[in-house]
Simulated assay, not measured.
Amino acid sequence: MIVECSNCHSTFNLPDELIPSEGRKVKCSVCDNVFDVAPEGAGEPEEDFTTAPFDADEDVSDEDLGSALDDAFSDDESDDEEPEDSDDDGAGGLGFDLDVAPKKSKKDLGGKGKLIGMIAAGVLLLLLLAGGGLYFFAPGVIGMAPEEQETQAEDPMLMAEQVKNIYLEGIRQYYVDNDKTGRVFVVEGKAVNQFDKPKELIEVEANLYDASDAVLDSVRLKCGNTLSLFQLQVLSRDEIEAALSDEAGIGANNVNLQNGQQVPFMIVFFDPADTVAEFNVSVVAAQDVTGL
């Protein structure tokens, strides 16, 4: 029979033969409430039974009742099924021994919590591995390229494509006597963007050669910076090099050059050799404008 606690309304399936005709007091192991339980059909007209009724006078010990109750509420039932009318979490059962502690359900053992924790840890590990794979094998997907961008930047074929439509105009060279460093050799001109898309951070390189075409000196720097003749005469070497090293150029004039726009450049050689016979200048790097 189904027995319901009068206090917490937990329900339990108790064998009918454990309840004598005059009823019995039982204790709810969920809330410790002690209440009376009467057999089913008490107070109703008696019916004929084909089997003999339970003998109320039969000597049934509390130990026997407790054993029967343990069998009635053991964990042998399927873990996936619970009594439909139960309002509790499946903890404990009814017992006649007031010292019997309520049973702990399998839900209290933390098995599901551990399983969820293991699954979460596994998912986190997979995400970390996936992120690392993208970083090294597909850096463009996550906006990072640890070493690949540097490799591409040094690829001669790739750089030739990046600068093939940038032309140099108005190139000239001259010597200047500097008060602090002596004679300097100056090369200046303009780089013109003839691509149909904007370019920026254009970089040029100048080389000095002797009569046998041996390289005497080489300087590479970004366009966009120039000095006046007076500055070339009075500034120190460190001051000149610092003034010509701004990547964006004066007023950011080496950024976002549209088709047909130009940017000036100036290269200074300190202590040039007396054997300088010729020089050349070339565009060696440029970048596409991103974020457009």
Rank of each mutant, 00 (worst) to 15 (best):
M1H: 06
E4I: 14
S10V: 14
D32R: 10
F35C: 01
A38N: 14
A38R: 07
P39R: 13
A42S: 15
E44C: 04
E44A: 05
T51N: 04
A52H: 00
A52M: 12
D57R: 15
D62G: 07
L65P: 06
D70T: 07
D71V: 08
A72K: 09
S74V: 03
D75H: 05
D76M: 09
D80R: 01
E82L: 09
S86V: 13
D87L: 12
D89V: 00
D89L: 11
G92D: 02
G95M: 01
G95F: 09
D97P: 06
L98P: 14
A101I: 15
D108A: 13
L109I: 04
L115T: 15
G117I: 00
G117D: 03
M118E: 11
M118Q: 10
A120M: 13
A121L: 14
G122W: 08
G122E: 11
V123D: 03
L124H: 05
L128F: 11
P139F: 08
I142K: 07
M144F: 06
E147L: 04
E150T: 04
T151I: 15
T151C: 00
E154N: 08
P156H: 06
M157S: 08
V163Y: 02
I166C: 03
Y167F: 11
I171Y: 05
Y174M: 02
Y175D: 15
T181V: 15
T181Y: 08
V184P: 09
V187Q: 05
E188F: 14
G189F: 10
G189K: 07
G189D: 13
Q194V: 01
F195S: 06
K199G: 05
V204T: 03
E205W: 02
E205K: 13
N207R: 14
N207C: 09
L208I: 04
L208Y: 05
A211R: 11
S212C: 01
S212L: 06
S212D: 13
S212M: 07
D213L: 07
D213S: 10
A214R: 12
L216W: 08
S218I: 14
R220W: 01
K222R: 13
K222I: 00
C223A: 15
C223F: 00
S228E: 06
F230T: 10
Q231R: 07
L232D: 03
Q233E: 07
Q233R: 11
S236W: 02
S236V: 05
R237L: 08
D238G: 03
E239R: 09
A242P: 00
A243H: 03
D246M: 01
D246F: 00
G249Y: 04
G251L: 07
V255H: 02
Q261A: 10
Q261K: 05
V263Y: 10
P264C: 03
M266R: 06
I267S: 06
V276Y: 13
E278D: 09
F279L: 10
V281I: 14
S282F: 04
V283P: 06
V284R: 05
A285N: 15
A286Q: 14
Q287G: 13
Q287T: 09
D288A: 11
D288M: 07
V289N: 08
G291M: 07
G291L: 14
